[in-house]
C-alpha cells in the first residue's frame, strides 16, 4: 500500500505552527506558575489552616480528581461567563481552568510532602522556642520541598499535555494549529506525525529529568 508523503504544506506554514508552539509553551509556563501558587496555598492551608477551612478545600481537591479537565475547561469558557458576567478570552479562560484543575494535584503533593516530614521535627523546633510559623518555614518546609520536587516535575509534564485540550475551546495552541493545517492541507499523516514529534521532543526531556530526580531521591533515603 502506497502512502506518498508531502511535507510541503507543513513547511510552508512553519510560522503558523511556530506560533502555536509558542502559545503551548506560554500557556504551560503560566499554568505551572499559577497552579504552583494556588496549589501551594491550598496545600498549606489544608495542613496549617483553621479547621473550618479544611473540608471545603478537601471538597475542591476531590472534585478536581473526579471531574475531567475537558469538562472544567468547557465549563470555564462557556458557562462561567453566564454566571459571573465576566467573559474571558480563550487563552485566559484556559489558563484559569487549567490552573484551578492542576492546583488540586499540587495541593495534594504539598500535603504529602509536609506530612512526610516526621512530627518529631516540628516538636524539636518548638522545643527550641521557635514559633509555629518559624518551625514550619525553617524546619518542615525545606525538608518537604526536597521531597516534593520530583512530583512537581511530573506536574510540568501533565500541564504541557493538558494544554493540548485547550484546543477544544479554540485556543490556537499547537494541537489546534495542527488540526487546522491537517484540514486545510489534506495532509493529515504528515501534520500529525510532526505534531507527535514536536510534543515528544518537548516532553521527553521533562519526563526523563523527573525520572532521574525520583531515582536520586530514592537513593537519598528517608529521614
Amino acid at each position: 500500500m502506497e502512502i506518498d508523503l508531502d511535507f510541503g504544506p507543513l513547511i510552508a506554514s512553519w510560522r503558523f505552527l511556530l506560533g502555536g508552539l509558542g502559545l503551548t509553551l506560554a500557556l504551560s509556563a503560566l499554568t505551572v506558575l499559577c497552579s504552583l501558587v494556588l496549589g501551594g496555598a491550598v496545600g498549606l492551608a489544608r495542613c496549617y489552616g483553621p479547621r473550618w477551612l479544611r473540608w471545603p478545600l478537601v471538597f475542591y481537591i476531590d472534585s478536581m480528581r473526579a471531574i475531567p479537565v475537558l469538562v472544567v475547561l468547557v465549563w470555564g469558557y462557556f458557562a462561567l461567563p453566564l454566571v459571573s458576567g465576566v467573559t474571558l478570552p480563550p487563552f485566559w479562560a484556559a489558563l484559569a481552568a487549567l490552573s484551578v484543575h492542576i492546583a488540586a494535584y499540587v495541593a495534594e503533593i504539598v500535603r504529602a510532602g509536609i506530612e512526610s516530614v516526621r512530627p518529631g521535627q516540628t516538636r524539636a523546633a518548638l522545643a527550641l522556642g521557635m514559633s509555629r510559623a518559624e518551625a514550619v518555614c525553617q524546619v518542615v518546609l525545606p525538608q518537604a520541598l526536597v521531597r516534593m520536587l520530583p512530583a512537581f516535575g511530573s506536574i510540568l509534564s501533565i500541564t504541557i499535555k493538558d494544554t493540548a485540550i485547550a484546543s477544544v475551546i479554540a485556543v490556537p495552541e499547537y494541537l489546534n494549529c495542527s488540526q487546522t493545517l491537517a484540514g486545510q492541507s489534506f495532509r493529515p499523516i504528515e501534520v500529525w506525525f510532526v505534531a507527535m514529534a514536536v510534543y515528544f521532543m518537548i516532553l521527553f526531556p521533562v519526563t526523563r529529568a523527573v525520572d532521574i530526580a525520583y531515582a536520586r531521591l530514592a537513593s537519598l533515603g528517608r529521614s
Binding site: S157, K161, A164, I165, L175, A182, F193, M196, F200
Partner: peptide, 17 residues
Amino acid sequence: FFRNLPLLLVIYAAYYI
C-alpha cells in the same frame, strides 16, 4: 512514546492515520 504525548493528540492521530 505514549508517556510523552498528549492523549488528545493520540486520539486525533489515530482518527486520521
